[in-house]
Design a protein around this nucleic acid. Structure first.
Length: 451
RNA sequence: GUGGGCGUAGCUCAGCUGGUAGAGCGCCUGGUUGUGGUCCAGGAGGUCGCGGGUUCAAGCCCCGUCGUUCACCCCA
C-alpha cells in the first residue's frame, strides 16, 4: 500500500499537538463548569429538515446514506450537524419536559461542513459552545453572562489576545427602519460585507440592491463606522439623528452588555461595541457576537453567537436562547501548524525507567508501578540498550527524567536529563517538580519567531 | 461550485536553455565496551503524484487526471 495522503479539511494532530488541544478543552471545561454550565453531547446526525431550516439553506451539509442502498433511493434523510446550536435547539425541544429552565449547557464537540478548506477552516472541526435557554422568556442579563463566561474562559487560554465584537440586531434594524429602508434584512447582509469590500462599493450596493438613496446609504455607513470600547457608541448613534423605537431598545441592550463586560477587559481580552457587525445567520434577534484573535484577523471570526428568540419552538412554547461558540480547531490548528504553539513532550511520561537487561525487566516494572501509584506518569524502556540510547529515547520524547535501578551501590538513581544532575532516589518518596508532572504548553510569539 | 499556485528522500526544499537524482535537517552504525546532547567517520533511504504525448533523450515541454494549497462564496 502506498503512503496515504492527508485528507484536506480533516486535520489530524501529532501527539504533542493533541496534548495542547486537550489542555485547552480541559481549561474551557473547567471555566464553563465553574459557572454552572452542564456538559452535553448530542448525536452527530440530525434529520435533514432540522439542519436545513432557519435560513441555513446554503450550508453544505454532509448527507448520510447507506453504502448498499438501492441506487436512486432517497437516502437516510440524515446529515452531519454543521454547528452545535441547531442540534441543541432540537435537543431542548425533545427534552423540554425533563430539563430545568433556564437551562445552561456547554458542548465541546465536532461539527462538519462540506465547504472548501482553508487555513482555519475545515470540513471536520471542534468547537466549544455555551448557551442558556429558557421557557417563554429569557432575561436579558444572560446575554451579558454568556459573554462574560466566554471572555473568562478565553482569557485563561495560552492563545493570543482575543477581541469580542458586540452588536445588536434590534439596534441596526431599528436604525435602518428609522431611515426608511424598504428591506432592513437586505441592508444587514450588504453592510456585513464591509470588512471585505471598500466602503464606496458597499454604498453602491446599498443603493442598487438595498433600495436606498445616497443619503440613506451614507447614514448606514456612518452607523457602521461606529466602534467603542465603552458606552460612548450610544451618543454617536444618537448624533446621527435617526429615531425609532427598536433602535432605542437595541441601544439600551448593547449598552447593558458593554456595562456588564467592563470588568473582563484587559490585556488578554477586549470587548468592543462594533456597529458594523451583523452576522449572516438570520435566527439572531438581538445581541450578536463575534470573536477575533489578535494578529490572526485573516482567519476572520474565530467564534460567534448571539440571541435567538425563536430558534426552538414546538408551536405552543418557544425557548429563547443566547449563546456563543468558540472555534477550537479554527484557532488551534493554525497556531500549531505555524509552530507558535506546541508542547515540550510527545508523551505524558515524566519518567523513563531504564532497563539493564531483559532479566531485570520485572525490577524496572516494579519501580514504575511504585511511581505510578503516586501519580507520576512513568514508562519502562522498550529495550535494554546501552544507557546512552535509553537516555536518547527519553530525550527524543521530551521525558525529563531517567531512572536507573540500582545504579549506585544498589541504590536507585534518577537523572534530570536536561541538567544532567543525577541523584540517589527512592521510588516510594521521590517526586518530580510539579511543573514536570505533565507536559507543558510552549508558546512562541510571532516576534520571537522572526528574530 | 469557479479561478490561480504547487506536487522531487521521513521533513523543508534546490535541480540552469531538456542530457544518467541533490542539499540541509532527521534517521541508523561506529569512534565512546551501561550515561544522551557537541564533534568526527561511515551508511540506509527516491515508481521525481499518476497516465499519456513530444523528443535520440523528460524531474524540466504539452495534454489529461488525482492530490494539495490560496482566493471567491460562506462561516467556527
Amino acid at each position: 500500500m502506498s503512503k496515504p495522503t492527508p485528507l484536506s479539511g480533516f486535520p489530524e494532530l501529532l501527539p504533542a499537538q493533541r496534548f495542547v488541544e486537550q489542555a485547552v478543552t480541559d481549561r474551557l471545561r473547567r471555566t464553563f463548569e465553574l459557572h454552572g454550565f452542564a456538559s452535553l453531547e448530542t448525536r452527530a446526525v440530525e434529520p435533514m429538515d432540522q439542519l436545513l431550516r432557519k435560513g441555513e439553506t446554503s450550508k453544505e451539509v454532509y448527507v448520510l446514506h447507506r453504502l448498499q442502498e438501492e441506487t436512486g433511493g432517497q437516502g437516510t434523510g440524515m446529515g452531519l450537524h454543521f454547528d452545535l446550536t441547531v442540534p441543541f435547539a432540537r435537543y431542548v425541544l425533545e427534552n423540554a419536559g425533563r430539563l430545568e429552565f433556564p437551562f445552561r449547557r456547554y458542548q465541546i464537540q465536532r461539527a462538519w461542513r462540506g465547504e472548501r478548506p482553508q487555513e482555519g477552516r475545515f470540513r471536520e472541526f471542534t468547537q466549544a459552545d455555551i448557551d442558556v435557554v429558557a421557557r417563554d422568556v429569557l432575561p436579558f442579563h444572560f446575554d451579558v453572562e454568556v459573554a462574560r463566561v466566554m471572555a473568562e474562559a478565553l482569557s485563561a487560554l495560552p492563545l493570543p489576545p482575543m477581541r469580542l465584537r458586540v452588536n445588536n440586531r434590534k439596534l441596526i434594524e431599528g436604525f435602518y427602519r428609522g431611515i426608511g429602508a424598504p428591506d432592513p434584512a437586505v441592508v444587514i447582509t450588504i453592510v456585513d460585507k464591509l470588512d471585505k469590500l471598500p466602503a464606496e462599493e458597499v454604498a453602491r450596493l446599498l443603493v442598487d440592491d438595498g433600495g436606498l438613496d445616497e443619503a440613506q446609504a451614507k447614514q448606514c455607513l456612518a452607523l457602521a463606522e461606529i466602534e467603542s470600547t465603552d458606552g460612548s457608541f450610544a451618543d454617536r448613534v444618537r448624533d446621527l439623528g435617526v429615531r425609532h423605537e427598536l433602535l432605542d431598545t437595541g441601544l439600551e441592550e448593547l449598552a447593558a452588555v458593554m456595562r456588564g463586560c467592563e470588568s473582563v477587559n484587559g490585556d488578554r481580552f477586549q470587548v468592543v461595541a462594533s456597529l458594523s457587525l451583523a452576522r449572516g445567520l438570520d435566527y439572531y434577534t438581538g445581541t450578536v457576537f463575534e470573536i477575533y484573535m489578535d494578529g490572526f484577523e485573516n482567519l476572520k471570526s474565530v467564534g460567534g453567537g448571539g440571541r435567538y428568540d425563536a430558534l426552538a419552538s414546538d408551536g405552543k412554547t418557544t425557548y429563547p436562547g443566547v449563546g456563543i461558540s468558540f472555534g477550537i480547531s479554527r484557532t488551534l490548528v493554525p497556531l500549531l501548524q505555524r509552530g507558535l504553539l506546541g508542547s515540550d513532550r510527545s508523551v505524558p511520561s515524566a519518567v523513563l525507567v531504564a532497563l539493564a537487561d531483559e532479566e531485570s525487566r520485572p525490577d524496572s516494572d516494579a519501580i514504575a508501578q511504585r511511581l505510578r501509584a503516586r501519580g507520576i506518569a512513568t514508562e519502562v524502556a522498550a529495550n535494554p540498550q546501552k544507557f546512552g540510547k535509553q537516555i536518547r529515547y527519553a530525550e527524543r520524547r521530551g521525558i525529563p527524567f531517567v531512572w536507573f535501578p540500582g545504579a549506585g551501590d544498589g541504590t536507585d538513581q534518577v537523572k534530570d536529563i536536561r541538567s544532567g544532575d543525577q541523584v540517589d532516589a527512592d521510588p516510594g518518596t521521590w517526586s518530580p517538580p510539579d511543573e514536570d508532572r505533565t507536559p507543558r504548553i510552549v508558546v512562541t510569539t510571532e516576534n520571537e519567531e522572526q528574530q
